[in-house]
Design a protein around this nucleic acid. Structure first.
Length: 738
RNA sequence: GCAUCCUUAGCUCAGUUGGCUAGAGCAUUCGAUUCACAUUCGAAAGGUCGAAGGUUCGAAUCCUUCAGGAUGCACCA
């Protein structure tokens, strides 16, 4: 036993590199190479090399595919850290562990990004290039983004199996998308129809309800004289075609008017004949309780019109300009027309009064444009239509028994076949389903999966491949990007082919993603997998929070408060970056991150490094048979207790507590106390105590390396590689301590 | 309008079925050390656990009401 000699010479078993502080960046790069060479991220390799049994329990996670819209942000880093911890923990337990990576073509997001750049740099629109040329550009951009992302995912230490990488728009996934579409079409759950949709006049496409962001705005609310009525409206520019005035059937103020009664009145561009309608949709509490309706540009009005079988007309065009129905106001933009119409009504004495009110304005998530409801021929998934699953492994969903997609989505969570962590999000999930309307899946953009439907005169054909014969034209619309994402857990495993991977790894074990895409994605996966496979896509949904800045603000480029994960990795190492995103982050809660926090965890990596140095310097004569003194046995038991605690926390998804427990034991107990008292022991003449202590130090170190490996994989592996004796060449596949 | 979450030390947060004197990190102050540590170690100070009621032998924890903050959904003529 030796302490560090005073003369500067070094004990023989200490690798040279240990004499310097831990250099995260250098070490991490060589460790990455080591892992890549090992191939252990591929479960087949682990089986071949006897690391896991071919009959071991499978553990699988599909990577939520990052959008190919540029680079990864710190939120992605948090996601990767969580998933990598779960995966490394499972792999070390000997499970057949697959973490399947991929990227998402992200239809609208990617296309609009390229369009913006093109407009800015060259002043070109996509229409200037045409569908084919434009798509070439998007594909090139997507490829570059993909390459960047792959590098970033790897750099943070993600032990994904690149040999199985997938892309939502590649050939295999295209086959899956078309097959799923056809199946749903044949079951009558996908239909095409004229419905009121959310039209984005800037992006020139429809968007789903979930792609809308509501902005609170203070706007004018006009009370207009409509014959004997006073009607309230915030949108006078839509009122040209309004020939119906609707009141609540029980509204005493309007008891004198009968349903269906016609009245003649003076309106914006002259006299019109209007009809009184009594319908419970009119809210007596709101405004005057009387309203006119514009079915073409309002969902509620559309419903009323459908109920009473009314005719309706488009007032605003696809670019947000008024149509000829507006007479002298035709071709004006909404904002301009609104003012002028009010001026005219004022002149005609038809404005009763003007008030202001605060309401939510629907804007498009991607373009920021104010959404204009429009009636359009679109494709939808019917969430309320009864159908029967031909096969079902879902409890509570019998095969060949009538059900609906809504019921399916609810059932799997209610019965606990899918567990949402934290569980409070289950309520949010149910609430969303209850309010769910048919899902509009067609988009008028070019980048994405084209709808697999062909037309020839009055014929319609839906299939995986184009139909035989001449004269068929494919639908020009593309699918909502979430349609292909919804298939992700099984399309990545080879479906529609019955592959070995699909058999082994589906349903996946955990889906880990942000709570902000619970509806977008998680719910859609449940829907698509339930219908297509008669199964659940995953057993657990782990929802992480948002990464915010130190003041709790959302990170955004415009605020300039973003933290670039790659920059942090270069400065402090991937281990430090990972720890800063894990400790203190419980499922579902946002995390506040600052650079200081990351810097703090850099010290931890260095601490571990130095602990290892001390231990190796003093355990040259380590003997695994050396009997423990009573005191050392107690410390060894404490270490075991930490292992159990960490393990329990990981299995209950409290990674923050697991990391914290190991961190504190290592620093405060093992380093500050055990190592300190070891110095005295090693200087003493008590051979028995010295032998016991050498064993304790060596074994506790290796134990802690294994426990900490999922959290700080690089520094633990770097130390492991320098151990004079170890049971496994690579820590990544060492046995998780029991 | 409906629902969810948060409010504990200056800051960031633990405290999971109610139970030993309410904890940690950072920051602050004081001291030690350069003997594994581009340091580290020790110590101190710092809290009426958002407010008020209630249940209980016992409440940061459970219940009720209220206040402030955040979020989701719905409404939004």
């Amino acid at each position: 036993m030796t302490l560090m000699p005073k003369d500067g010479s070094k004990p023989s078993n200490i690798p040279e590199v240990f004499l310097k502080p831990y250099n995260a960046v250098d070490e991490e790069l060589s460790i990455l190479a080591l892992w890549e060479k090992s191939g252990y991220a591929n479960p087949d390799v682990c089986i071949q090399k006897g690391i896991s049994s071919s009959t071991a329990e499978p553990f699988s996670i599909v990577l939520p595919p990052p959008n190919v819209t540029g680079t990864l942000h710190i939120g992605h880093a948090a996601m990767l850290a969580v998933e990598d911890i779960l995966v490394r923990h499972a792999r070390m337990q000997g499970k057949r562990t697959l973490w399947l990576p991929g990227t998402d073509h992200a239809a609208i997001a990617t296309q609009s990004k390229v369009e913006k750049e093109m407009q800015k740099k060259e002043g070109l629109s996509r229409h200037d290039l045409g569908r084919e040329k434009f798509l070439e550009r998007v594909v090139k951009f997507a490829q570059e983004s993909h390459d960047t992302i792959v590098g970033q995912v790897t750099r943070i230490g993600s032990s994904v199996d690149w040999s199985r990488e997938a892309f939502t728009l590649d050939e295999a996934r295209t086959k899956a998308v078309r097959t799923a579409f056809k199946n749903m079409y044949d079951a009558g759950l996908i239909y095409r129809g004229h419905r009121i949709v959310n039209w984005d006049p800037k992006g020139q496409t429809t968007i789903s309800d979930d792609e809308i962001v509501y902005e609170e705005r203070k706007e004018k609310f006009y009370y207009l004289k409509y014959g004997p009525f006073v009607i309230g409206t915030a949108r006078p520019e839509t009122k040209f075609g309004d020939k119906y005035v609707v009141v609540h059937p029980d509204d005493a103020r309007y008891a004198d008017y009968a349903h269906g009664q016609e009245i003649t009145l003076e309106w914006i561009n002259g006299p019109i004949t209007a009809t009184v309608l009594k319908d419970a949709a009119a809210n007596p509490e709101f405004g005057t309780g009387a309203m006119t309706i514009t079915p073409w540009h309002d969902a509620t009005d559309f419903d009323i019109a459908e109920r009473h079988d009314l005719k309706y007309e488009q007032v605003i065009d696809w670019y947000g300009k008024l149509l000829p129905i507006a007479g002298e106001f035709a071709n004006m933009k909404i904002a301009e027309a609104r003012e002028k119409i009010i001026e005219k009504l004022q002149a005609k004495g038809l404005v009763d009064r003007v008030e202001e009110y605060v309401h939510n304005v629907a804007t498009a998530e991607r373009t920021g444009a104010v959404v204009e409801p429009q009636i359009k021929l679109q494709w939808f998934i019917d969430v309320d239509k009864p159908f029967a699953l031909p096969h079902s492994q879902i409890k509570g969903m019998l095969p060949n028994t009538e059900t609906t997609l809504k019921r399916l989505m609810k059932t799997v969570v209610e019965t606990g076949q899918v567990t949402i962590v934290p569980d409070r999000f289950a309520k949010t999930y149910y609430n969303w389903i209850d309010n769910l309307r048919d899902w509009c899946i067609s988009r008028q953009i070019w980048y994405g999966h084209r709808i697999p439907v062909w037309y020839r005169e009055n014929e319609v054909y839906c299939g995986i491949e184009a139909p035989e014969g001449a004269g068929w034209e494919q639908d020009t619309d593309t699918l909502d990007t979430w349609f292909s994402s919804g298939l992700w857990t099984f399309s990545t495993l080879g479906w529609p082919d019955q592959t070995q991977d699909l058999e082994t790894y589906h349903p996946t074990t955990v889906l880990e993603t942000g709570y902000d895409i619970l509806f977008f994605w998680v719910a859609r996966m449940v829907l698509m997998t339930g219908f297509t496979m008669g199964a659940v896509p995953f057993k657990y949904v782990y929802l992480h929070g948002l990464v915010r800045d130190a003041q709790g603000r959302k990170m955004s480029k415009s605020l300039g408060n973003t933290i670039d994960p790659l920059e942090m990795i270069e400065k402090y190492g991937a281990d430090a970056t990972r720890m800063s995103l894990i400790v203190g982050a419980q499922p579902g809660n946002d995390i506040k991150l600052s650079e200081d926090r990351i810097r703090g965890y850099k010290h931890f990596a260095n601490k571990l490094w130095n602990i290892a140095r001390f231990v190796l310097e003093n355990t040259e004569s380590y003997d695994p048979q050396a009997p423990y003194t009573a005191h050392d046995a107690k410390i060894a038991a404490e270490a075991q207790e930490v292992v159990r605690t960490a393990h329990t926390h990981i299995t209950t998804f409290r990674l923050d507590l697991a990391a914290d427990a190991a961190y504190h034991f290592v620093w405060d107990r093992f380093a500050s106390e055990v190592l300190e008292e070891s110095k005295t022991i090693f200087r003493s003449e008590d051979m028995e105590a010295k032998r016991s202590r050498a064993r304790l130090l060596y074994e506790t170190l290796t134990l802690m390396l294994r426990v900490l490996h999922p959290f700080v994989p690089f520094v633990t592996e770097a130390i492991w590689q320098r151990l004079p004796r170890k049971e496994s060449d690579v820590l990544m596949v060492a046995k998780w301590p029991q």
